[in-house]
Amino acid sequence: MLKYIRLIGAVMLTATAMLACKEDFPVDEDGLLITGRTQCYVSNFELLGSDLQTVRTKNAVVDTVAQTVDVEVFYGTDLKNLRPQFSLVTDAKLEPKITGKVDFSDLANPKKYTVISGNRQIKKTYTVKITVQKP
């Protein structure tokens, strides 16, 4: 009888521990919180050179309707070693992830990035178009 009481106690303790560790909020494969937000857009864009200084000649133009980012860089900018930085609406995420330098040297084929809403249901692909300032 004592053996069964200990067994029942162990099962209850295990069940309680499992319930206590259950996540209250859903997260995605990146460990980011999934929310109910449906907004999905780029609010600002920055482009840095290898020295981590801006290479833009002026502010980037972000068009949330056409889903484009137009940015002009200084003449002579090393387009193979740029670091794009996106500002997104709250809880959104970007794919592909930016983990370092990006090669933007193929100006005929602009880079594309997808913004994914906080609820992970809406995706919008933005095209980043770079032009080089005339000498």
Rank of each mutant, 00 (worst) to 15 (best):
V102H: 03
G100M: 08
K97N: 10
S105D: 15
S105N: 12
Y113A: 01
K93V: 09
I98F: 11
K93G: 05
S105Y: 12
Q133V: 02
R120S: 05
Q133L: 13
K101M: 03
T131I: 08
L107Y: 09
R120Y: 04
T127P: 01
L94A: 13
G118V: 01
N119G: 05
I98Y: 10
K123P: 01
K129N: 15
K124S: 04
I122F: 09
K93H: 12
L107N: 06
L107C: 12
D103P: 14
V102I: 09
P110G: 04
T99W: 04
K112G: 04
V115A: 00
I98L: 15
S105A: 10
K111R: 15
G118K: 01
I116G: 02
T114N: 03
Q121F: 10
P110M: 07
K129F: 08
V128S: 00
I122C: 02
T131A: 11
K123R: 15
T99R: 13
I122Y: 05
L94V: 02
G118W: 01
V128M: 03
K123E: 08
S105K: 06
V102N: 02
T114A: 04
P96R: 10
K97W: 07
L107T: 09
Q121A: 14
I98D: 12
V115M: 02
Q133W: 07
T127M: 06
K101P: 08
R120K: 11
I98C: 11
N109F: 07
V132C: 10
K93D: 09
T127N: 02
S105R: 10
L107A: 09
I122T: 12
G118L: 04
L94N: 05
V132N: 10
T131L: 06
V132T: 11
T125V: 14
V102M: 13
N119R: 08
